[in-house]
Amino acid sequence: MTKRLIAYVHVDGQAYGPGDKLPAAVAKRIGAHAFASDVDEGGREDQEDLEISSNVQRTLEVPPRSGRGSGVEAWRDFLSRHEIAADPDATRDDLIAAAEQSGLIEPEPPQE
């Protein structure tokens, strides 16, 4: 089976997604959790691959920056799933900034 990305990832400011051909140097920098196995010769995906894809998708979901689901705990959990340490006294804005600085999310464009 071949490997393909299951979601879009950003490496050095360049976006890569499902169906994109990855340069070897870029592929080495992307964790195995971002890949899923393609359909096998029998025309079906392995159940284990489907379960991994589902778990990875939940891990990749970024909390909203405001509104419902945007609280400190949601952001702390998101950073924790990506193994980013956060100060226990950090505010939601501090946690969002940490996610931006670590490259997990794109910085929000400045408001005019």
Score class of each variant (00 low, 15 high):
R68N: 07
P107G: 10
A85P: 04
A85V: 13
D20V: 01
G17A: 00
A98Q: 15
K3C: 08
P109H: 09
G19K: 02
E106W: 14
A27Q: 04
G67L: 07
R44Q: 12
A24H: 06
R4K: 14
V11I: 11
R68Y: 04
A98F: 03
A27R: 13
L22Q: 05
G69F: 02
G42P: 04
Q47M: 06
R81I: 00
L5Q: 04
G42D: 12
A7T: 08
V11E: 05
E51K: 11
E61L: 14
S54T: 10
A74T: 02
V62D: 10
I96T: 10
P107R: 11
F78M: 03
L5A: 05
D38S: 15
D12S: 09
R81V: 03
I105W: 10
R76H: 04
I105T: 14
A98W: 01
S70K: 00
V72K: 03
A15L: 02
A15W: 03
L50W: 00
I105F: 10
A24V: 11
L95S: 11
A97I: 11
P63I: 00
E100W: 06
V9G: 01
E61G: 05
W75R: 01
E48D: 12
D87T: 12
F78W: 00
Q14D: 11
H33T: 12
Y8E: 08
P110G: 15
S80T: 14
I6L: 14
G31E: 12
V56L: 06
V56I: 07
L5I: 02
L50G: 13
A34V: 04
G42S: 11
A74D: 01
S66I: 03
H10Q: 14
D89P: 03
P63R: 02
E45Y: 06
L22R: 08
W75K: 00
P110Y: 05
G103W: 07
D87E: 13
I105H: 07
I96W: 00
F35W: 02
T2H: 11
E45S: 09
H10D: 10
Y16M: 04
T91V: 04
I96E: 02
E112T: 15
L104S: 10
G69S: 01
T59P: 01
G19A: 02
E61A: 13
R76I: 05
L79T: 01
L95Q: 07
R65A: 14
S66G: 08
S54W: 10
E108L: 08
A98Y: 04
F35L: 04
E48I: 12
P107W: 08
P63K: 00
G31P: 09
E100Y: 08
G67D: 05
L50Y: 06
Y16F: 09
P18E: 09
D89G: 07
V62M: 09
G31S: 15
A86I: 03
T2I: 13
E83S: 12
P18K: 05
A99G: 12
L50A: 11
L95R: 09
D12G: 14
T91C: 03
A15K: 13
K21D: 14
M1F: 03
V9M: 05
A25V: 13
E108Q: 13
T59S: 09
I30L: 03
E73K: 14
Y8W: 11
E41R: 11
H33I: 11
S80F: 02
A24K: 04
